[in-house]
């Protein structure tokens, strides 16, 4: 595995129709809102969770792509059997210094777990080397426009407990957004990739995961979610060739009809523009999606 030679940044656009992209545990599972602007939020960890889930699905039981932070719904026991069959032998050598041991453990974790090598992990050791900082970092995603959560009451025709059988049917609540287009910013550090062994193949897998992120994450709560755009900025040098915020500014998302009073209800109500003219030298733009 050769490490990355370039720094990357990406702008990722996804939308939700009649669903809840990320519930807020503080607000009774209402979609997360930025209280100052009423724009919707999706946390970094919510997106990382879905990336892990996608990789677990695509790379099912392939060595080197295990997921450390698993969701039970994704797990299947074939994993273990496959590993037993492959039988990666990695006898720890007796090393004199604690630090070397810690480094060995870290290296093994990076080699075997996709999420450790991508996002990092914290391991309890006395030495600092037990912490992995991953090359990929994602910030909170924010919706382009303010969103309005709707509360939809639903009924259930069955009851949980037998003693309730004569009572009224239970009512439940769903919180949905009629529509929301979200924008997330991400960073890939080549220098940290070097340290965890995050390779070009892993990067392609990350792009694939983002492209198909919601295709395998259907549920009653999510409604229709879709990845709409993935714009990647590739820097010539490993350290980068331009400030990240200048590159992010080159991606402009606006309403097709400026000044319309009606709220957006579909991706067609938005236009995404990449100002290719203004891209600094040494940076190339690629629209992966």
């Amino acid at each position: 595995m050769t490490a990355l030679a370039h720094r990357y940044e990406f702008v990722y656009l996804f939308d939700v129709t009649n669903g809840n992209p990320n519930g807020d545990p503080d607000a009774g599972n209402l979609p997360r809102l930025d209280p100052e602007t009423n724009r919707g939020l999706v946390t970094d960890v919510a997106l990382k969770r879905k990336i892990r889930n996608y990789v677990a699905l695509e790379k099912e039981s392939e060595p080197g792509y295990a997921i450390y932070m698993q969701e039970k719904s994704v797990l299947n026991n074939q994993h273990k059997q496959a590993y037993e069959a492959v039988g990666i032998q990695h006898e720890p050598k007796k090393l004199p210094k604690d630090e070397d041991k810690a480094r060995e453990i870290t290296a093994w974790m990076c080699a075997n777990f996709f999420d450790v090598r991508t996002f990092g992990a914290v391991m309890t050791t006395d030495v600092n080397a037990g912490q992995v900082r991953g090359p990929v970092q994602i910030a909170f995603a924010t919706s382009i426009d303010p969103v309005l959560p709707l509360e939809v009451s639903i009924t259930r025709m069955a009851v949980t407990h037998e003693k309730d059988i004569e009572k009224e049917r239970t009512m439940g609540r769903k919180h949905i957004l009629p529509y929301g287009l979200y924008r997330a910013h991400g960073f890939v550090s080549a220098k940290l990739a070097e340290r965890t062994g995050f390779s070009d193949d892993d990067l392609q897998l990350l792009w694939r995961a983002l492209t198909n992120l919601f295709e395998h994450d259907r549920s009653a709560a999510r409604g229709e979610m879709a990845a709409r755009k993935l714009i990647v900025f590739k820097h010539e040098s490993a350290m980068g060739n331009a400030p990240a915020h200048l590159l992010f500014d080159k991606v402009v998302v606006e309403r097709t009809e400026a000044g319309t009073a009606t709220p957006a209800r579909g991706y067609g109500d938005y236009r995404v523009r990449v100002d290719r003219e203004g891209i600094p030298a040494g940076v190339s733009v690629e629209e992966v999606l």
Partner: peptide, 9 residues
């Protein structure tokens, strides 16, 4: 040699 054993749920 079983990475699956360390996975956390």
């Amino acid at each position: 040699g079983r990475p699956g054993d360390v996975a956390s749920f």
